[in-house]
């Protein structure tokens, strides 16, 4: 048996996982691009947080002395009427916008996911049924409001700023995860392997983790990745309306930038002003969408192994030497069985 497959050695298993990851990415050029884009975006955000000077030549409100100039080598996306460098402002907004995406989608995933698990899994016991109904009706109430309007209203009530907006969007975002997780749990929990585990005496908590949550991860992570893009767009929309953050200010934000440049009425005379923040939103959302698609293939053992097989022609195969029959289905041992007295009745 090949050493890389022995379940005893953990490091070999990790190396195999890494190799599989690489093969799947290589087989899907688009998701590979997405993965690369997300990696670059994250590294760029990190550099801007640690040492902004490396990527950004100017500060957020630093006057360059050049007013309303088009793109040039010195100012890749031009300057605005205040003589601020637009490229610098856009890049400086990256960590905030990315963080907002992760925080809101993450908070919604954790809160909504936990509620969805409870509502889906524990709905047979009397107490659980009551909890399930309560959770789902509250979810319905939230879903019946247009989430953007609700988030706007909450932001207005809490005051202008990044934190109130993040809080407001999170508050309207979790119900989608409740619905998604509950639906998946309801489908999974009656599958024979869950019942078989229960019949073997596996405790409910362990069933929930090993047999339900593990099989939920794939759709949830994919949804989460795609959702980061949606959150960004929503936040930018609220920023565009002008209740999230102020621009120009010490901390730029893409939505607010778009709103400011658009409202200055210069879109026909100085179009580069809106181009940079718009492009930034577009690229980030696209990157996460492409990554989400690729993740689906990596997380599902079925497609994962298919990609590994597809890659056999390039690399030495990791397993098939000792497998007796065709790689599609392995049915060793059948020929050993006595077949006389078959049960055709």
């Amino acid at each position: 048996m090949p050493a890389s497959l022995s379940s005893g050695s953990r490091t070999a298993g990790f190396r195999e996982t890494l190799g599989t990851f690489w093969r799947v990415l290589r087989a899907n050029p688009l998701s590979f691009v997405g993965f690369l884009m997300v990696a670059i975006i994250c590294v760029a955000a990190l550099i801007i947080v640690v040492a902004p000077g490396l990527l950004v030549p100017y500060g957020p409100q630093q006057e360059t002395g050049v007013f309303s100039q088009g793109p040039s080598w010195k100012h890749p996306f031009g300057t605005d009427a205040n003589s601020f460098d637009i490229y610098s402002n856009t890049m400086l907004a990256l960590p905030l916008d990315l963080g907002i995406g992760f925080v809101i989608a993450g908070a919604a995933l954790l809160a909504g996911g936990a509620l969805g698990l409870v509502a889906g899994f524990y709905d047979t016991s009397p107490l659980g049924a009551a909890a399930s109904v309560t959770i789902m009706r509250i979810t319905d109430v939230f879903l019946s409001f247009p989430s953007l309007i609700l988030a706007l209203a909450i932001t207005r009530a809490l005051g202008i700023g990044v934190l109130p907006t993040v809080f407001a969007i999170s508050l309207t975002w979790w119900p989608y995860y409740v619905r998604l997780v509950r639906g998946e749990v309801l489908a999974l929990k009656h599958l024979p392997y869950v019942i078989a585990a229960r019949a073997a005496g596996v405790r409910e908590g362990r069933i929930l983790l090993r047999h339900i949550v593990r099989n939920l991860l794939e759709p949830i992570i994919v949804y989460f990745t795609l959702d980061i893009g949606t959150v960004l767009v929503t936040y930018s929309t609220i920023g565009f309306i002008g209740v999230a953050s102020k621009y120009p200010g010490p901390q730029p934000e893409w939505g607010a930038m778009l709103a400011y440049y658009q409202s200055s009425g210069s879109i026909t005379t100085t179009p580069w002003e809106v181009l940079a923040p718009g492009l930034a939103i577009f690229i980030t959302v696209l990157a996460f969408s492409l990554l989400g698609d690729g993740l689906r293939d990596i997380l599902d053992p079925r497609t994962r192994r298919a990609f590994v097989r597809g890659a056999v022609s390039h690399d030495p195969p990791p397993e098939p030497q000792s497998v007796p029959s065709s790689p599609g289905t392995i049915d060793g041992g059948l020929d050993r069985l006595p077949t006389e007295g078959g049960a055709t009745g």
Binding site: M1, L5, S6, S7, P301, R302, R305, E319, S322, V323, P324, T329, I330, D331, G332, G333, L334, R336, L337
Partner: peptide, 24 residues
């Protein structure tokens, strides 16, 4: 349950096995 080469089977995922193997 008369499975041939159980050491390989151990490390496979269910979808890589035929129906009869899974039932066994």
């Amino acid at each position: 349950v008369r499975i041939n080469d159980p050491e390989t089977i151990l490390n496979l995922y269910p979808h890589e096995l035929s129906g009869g193997m899974r039932q066994r």
